[in-house]
Amino acid sequence: ALWCLMMSLTPTRGCLLDLPWEDILIPHILCHVPLQQLLSLQRVSKSFQSLIQLYLANMRCFDSSQIGPAIPQAAFVNLLKDSKVLQQLALQNCSGWLTDMDLLPILWRNHHLHQIQLKGCGRLSRSTLVSISLNCPNLRQLSLAHCDWVDSLSLRSLADHCKALEAVDLTACRQLKDEAICYLVQKCSRLKSLSLAVNANVGDMAVQETAKCCPELEHLDLTGCLRVKNDSIRVLAEYCPKLRSLKVKHCHNVAESSLSVLRVRGVELDVEPPLQRALVLLQDVVGFAPFINIQI
C-alpha cells in the first residue's frame, strides 16, 4: 500500500496530494493503509507530514499493536495529541508505562468512544475508570482485564453513566466482590458478554443476579471462580436463553449435573463431559481408548 502511494508521486500520474484531503484521501484512501506505514510517510515531505497529522486528528480507531510490540510514551502522546473523534481505543501494548496523566487528556477530548481496551494497564488508577464513565456515555465494550486498580466505587460510577455497555472484561480484577458485580448488571442490563474470570471473590450471588438482569447474555467467563456452585449454573440456564458459551474451568464446585442442561441446548462449554474426560485420561495412561457404547 505504501509503494502504491509513493508511485502516485510520479509526474505521469499526478500528485497524490492534489486530491482533496478531507473528502478523498483521509476517509477513502489513508484509512486502508497500516498506521505504521502512514507514520513513515511523514518523512517524505512537509506536505505529507501535514497530511498525516490531519489524518491522526480525524482518526476514528487507534490500536497500539498496529505500530509494534511496544510504542514509546512520547510517540503515543504525539500521535493522539489532536484527536477528538476517536471511537475505538486499544492500548494493551502501552501497559508497561501508561498512566492516568497519559490517558486522561485523551478521554477528556474524545466523547464518542464506544470501545476501549486497557488489558494489563496496571499503572492506571480508579481515576481513569471514573473519567471513562463521565466522558464516554456511548461506551459499548470495555476491557479491564488484569487491572488490579479497579474497585467497587469506580465500577459503580461506570454502571451509573454507561448503561449501554454490551461487553465488559473484568478478568482478574480481584478487588471486586459480588455486590459490585450485582450493581453493574442491574444498571447495564444490555450486557451480552461478561468475564469475571480469575476472581475468588465472585460467587453465586453475582452469577445469579447477572442471569436475572441480563436476558441478552451470550458469553460468560467464570474461569477460576472457586465460589461458584451448581445453583448458579441452573439459574443461568433458566434466565439466559441466548447463552452461547460458558467457561467454568477450575470451578471445582460446578458439576455435570448443572452443566448438562446447557450442554443439551448446544451451549459451548470449556469442560468435557465426565465420560469423555475419563476416556482421555485413560488414553494418556495406556496409549489407547477402549471402545465404549455410550448410547447404552
Rank of each mutant, 00 (worst) to 15 (best):
R109T: 02
L118A: 08
W97H: 07
V207M: 06
S83I: 09
N93P: 00
L170G: 05
S83H: 07
V207L: 04
H111G: 06
Y183W: 11
I132V: 15
D169L: 07
C182P: 04
I181Y: 10
I106E: 01
L79C: 14
A164Q: 15
L155G: 02
W149Y: 07
H111L: 02
L155V: 04
L196F: 11
M101T: 11
D204E: 13
E209A: 13
S143R: 00
A180K: 09
D82R: 11
Q141N: 13
A206F: 08
A159Q: 05
H161A: 10
S157N: 09
T128A: 12
N78H: 15
A75K: 10
S154N: 00
D82V: 07
H114P: 00
L191K: 09
Q73L: 12
S195A: 11
V150L: 03
H114C: 06
G120L: 03
L184G: 10
A74H: 13
L79H: 12
L142V: 02
A172K: 08
S83R: 03
S157C: 13
P72E: 14
L104I: 14
A74C: 12
I132K: 01
L142R: 01
D82E: 15
A180I: 10
K177V: 07
L134Q: 15
L196Q: 10
R126Q: 13
N78W: 15
N135Q: 15
C173M: 04
L91E: 02
D169E: 12
L170M: 07
T99I: 04
D102R: 01
L153R: 09
L80D: 06
I106P: 01
N93W: 00
